[in-house]
Amino acid sequence: MLKAGLSRRTFIGGSVVLGALLTNFRFAKAFVAPSLPYRRKKIANIRELRTHRPIMFNYPDENSPAILVKIGRPAIGGIGPDKDIVAFSALCTHQGCPIQYSRGRFICKCHYSMFDPAKNGQTYQGHASEWLPQIRLRLDRKGNIYAEAIEGLVWGRVINLLPK
């Protein structure tokens, strides 16, 4: 149901409360992610994926680690036949430590924030004010999985594509 490429507005339309919260968020719109010219990057082929076996990759550049994982339950923004393949920035949004995928969720052992990969990287416990930035994925006919854009600010940057 939640295809990548579906516009945010259509999607949010489902949530009356938050739809109302956003309509007047004028300035936010200016920087609403993805607002930058992200490049598409191939991460893996769907045949290589095993449930709960994360694949590390870097996106949008080599200094920004990310995790691709098949979580075995349908996820918001998930792709594949089971809608359970998701990717996130692997830097904790709290103070930038690397997060680990363990038993179906992400955990950061620096100050014990936990994020739910099925729920848009929601911080369901811990200090991290910001949910984990989710990476938009695309699946092609051959089963190749591509990262297309990142929704949310990667920790340690003020702009996801580092300026020169």
């Binding site: 919260l21 968020f25 936010a28 607002s35 929704e151 949310g152 003020v158």
Partner: peptide, 13 residues
Amino acid sequence: MALFARKDRLPIP
């Protein structure tokens, strides 16, 4: 896809 508007850059002071 995100459940609410996220940003990917911020202004620099």
